[in-house]
Simulated assay, not measured.
Amino acid sequence: MHVGVSIGPYLDRIETIPDAFEYVEIGLGEGEQPIGEINVNSVSERLHKRNLDVTVHLPYYQPLATAVDTIDSATLSYIDSVLETASALGATTAVAHPTRRGIAPSSEQFHEQLRSLVEIGHTHDVTVCFETTGYAGDLALDRVGATIDDVDGAICLDIGYAYLEAGVSGIRTLLTQYGDIVEHLHVHDGRHRGDTHIPVGSGDVAMADIGSLLQEFVPEATATIEVFTDDAAHLTDSRQRFIELIEDVDSQ
Rank of each mutant, 00 (worst) to 15 (best):
Y61T: 15
A136P: 01
L213C: 02
Y161H: 15
V126A: 11
T16D: 05
G167D: 11
R100K: 15
A136C: 03
T224V: 14
L11Y: 00
G167N: 12
E131R: 01
H48K: 14
V151W: 05
A88H: 03
M207H: 13
R172I: 04
T132H: 03
L141W: 00
Y60V: 09
Q240N: 15
S238M: 09
E244I: 01
L141H: 05
T127M: 10
E15K: 08
G153F: 12
I243R: 09
G8F: 04
S6W: 00
D158L: 07
G194C: 07
I171Q: 11
H192T: 02
I155M: 14
I103F: 08
V218D: 00
R143I: 00
P105D: 15
D237C: 03
V151S: 12
T127G: 01
L174D: 09
A233S: 13
T236H: 03
L164S: 08
R143A: 10
F217H: 14
D209F: 02
A20P: 01
T147R: 06
D12V: 02
A136R: 12
T123M: 12
L213H: 07
G145S: 05
E30I: 08
T133H: 06
G190E: 10
S77H: 06
G190Q: 08
D250H: 10
I210P: 02
E216N: 05
E45S: 10
A104H: 15
V56G: 14
I171H: 02
H234A: 13
G27P: 10
I103M: 05
E37M: 10
T55F: 10
Q240M: 06
G134H: 04
H111D: 06
H192A: 07
A136W: 06
Q215M: 05
H186W: 07
A154P: 06
D53G: 15
E165H: 12
G102C: 11
A104M: 11
P63Y: 02
V95T: 14
E112F: 08
V68C: 09
T66G: 12
H122I: 05
V118G: 05
H184Y: 13
H48Q: 14
R46V: 01
V82N: 09
R191T: 13
H184V: 03
P219F: 04
I79L: 14
I159T: 12
D149M: 06
K49M: 10
K49W: 06
T85D: 01
E247P: 06
P34G: 04
E25D: 10
I148W: 04
V128E: 03
S87I: 05
V128I: 13
G201V: 06
I38T: 09
V200T: 08
N39E: 13
G121Q: 05
T127P: 04
H124W: 13
Y163A: 07
Y60R: 09
R46M: 10
